[in-house]
Design a protein around this nucleic acid. Structure first.
Length: 260
DNA sequence: AGTACCACCTGACGGC
DNA sequence: TGCCGTCAGGTGGTAC
C-alpha cells in the first residue's frame, strides 16, 4: 500500500496519537527490519524520551525524538502503524513496538518485512544519503518539467524513480497518467512542456485527493482508475476494457481509448 | 541512461 | 482439500 498518500495518513495518525508521551520501552520482534541500528541501541535512544512532531519525505516518515535525532520509518509494500492499548489488539505482524507511559503502544506492523526502521541525525541528511529527489507534494511545476523533460525512457517508470522525485509508486503513477490522459509507456522525449505540466497538475490533484480520502481505496470516486484497477475492469469514463501490461516489471493499467 | 530480471519476505488467490 | 504457480501498491543489485 504505502505510497505518499498512505504515509501522509500515517504521519497524521502518529501525530494524533503518539506525541509528547514518555517512551518506556521498545521491543523488536523482527530485527531484520532494522537498518543501521541494533535493537539494543534503538531502545537506548528512545527510552525515557518523547516523540515530537513527525515529518514525511516521499514514502519515508521521520519522527522527531526529543533530544536525539529522528526515528525513520519506511513501510515497504505492507507496512502500517497501529496505536493500541489492549494486549489482544496488537496487529498480526508487529515487528517493532514502542511502549508509552500511558499504557498504550505504537506498533510498526509489516507482513512482508520489506520496509525499514532506522535512526537519522537529520531528515535532509537521510534523504541525501538515500538519494531521494524532492517530495512529490513539494516540487513546483517548473522543477517538475525540467526534471522530466527530454529524458530517455517511458513516463511511468520515471515518475516512480525516487531519485528524481520522491513519493509516487505504482498505483498512483497509473492514477496520475489516467487523469492526464497519457499512456504509461509514452516516451518522455515525445512529451512537450504543456503535457508535462498537465501531468504535474494531475499528480497534485490525485495526491491531494488521496490524502483527503485517507488513502482509503474505498474513498476514491468512481471516476478514478483505482476502483477499476483490476483485470476485467472498465474505464469509468468511456467503458472501454482497461488494458493491463507490464512496465519496468510492474503491473500497469490504463485505458487504451483516451490514454495516448 | 534505462530497463529487465532477480532477490528480499509472506500471504492470497485461481487452476487443477 | 491440497498443492503449485503467480501475483502483490517497495527498493536495491546486477547484467545487458
Amino acid at each position: 500500500m504505502p505510497e505518499l498518500p498512505d504515509v501522509e495518513v500515517y504521519r497524521k495518525y502518529l501525530n494524533a496519537t503518539s506525541l509528547h508521551k514518555e517512551i518506556t520501552g521498545v521491543s523488536v520482534s523482527s530485527p531484520e527490519v532494522l537498518e543501521g541500528v541494533s535493537a539494543r541501541k534503538l531502545g537506548f535512544r528512545l527510552k525515557g524520551r518523547k516523540f515530537g512532531s513527525a515529518r514525511r519525505h516521499g514514502k519515508y516518515l521521520f519522527v522527531k525524538v526529543e533530544g536525539d535525532g529522528w526515528l525513520v520509518l519506511h513501510f515497504g509494500m505492507t507496512g502500517r502503524l497501529k496505536y493500541f492499548r489492549e494486549p489482544g489488539h496488537e496487529p498480526e505482524h508487529d515487528r517493532v513496538r514502542v511502549d508509552f507511559a500511558n499504557g498504550y503502544h505504537l506498533a510498526y506492523d509489516s507482513r512482508r518485512k520489506l520496509g525499514i526502521v532506522s535512526m537519522a541525525e537529520s531528515v535532509e541528511g537521510f534523504a541525501a544519503k538515500k538519494g531521494l529527489g524532492p517530495d512529490a507534494l513539494q516540487i513546483d511545476a517548473g522543477t517538475f518539467v525540467e526534471t522530466f523533460r527530454g529524458r530517455r525512457g517511458s513516463v511511468k517508470p520515471a515518475l516512480m524513480r525516487q531519485g528524481l522525485m520522491a513519493g509516487v509508486g505504482n498505483v498512483y503513477a497509473d492514477e496520475i497518467l489516467f487523469h492526464a490522459g497519457v499512456r504509461p509507456n509514452k516516451k518522455l522525449r515525445d512529451l512537450g512542456d504543456r503535457k508535462l505540466k498537465a501531468i504535474y497538475c494531475a499528480m497534485r490533484e490525485v495526491l491531494e485527493e488521496a490524502v483527503e480520502a485517507g488513502a482509503d481505496p474505498g474513498g476514491f470516486p468512481e471516476t478514478c482508475l483505482l476502483p477499476h484497477r483490476k483485470i476485467g475492469g472498465r474505464c469509468p469514463r468511456c467503458g472501454a476494457a482497461l488494458e493491463k501490461t507490464r512496465l519496468s516489471g510492474r503491473g500497469t493499467f490504463y485505458c487504451p481509448r483516451h490514454q495516448r
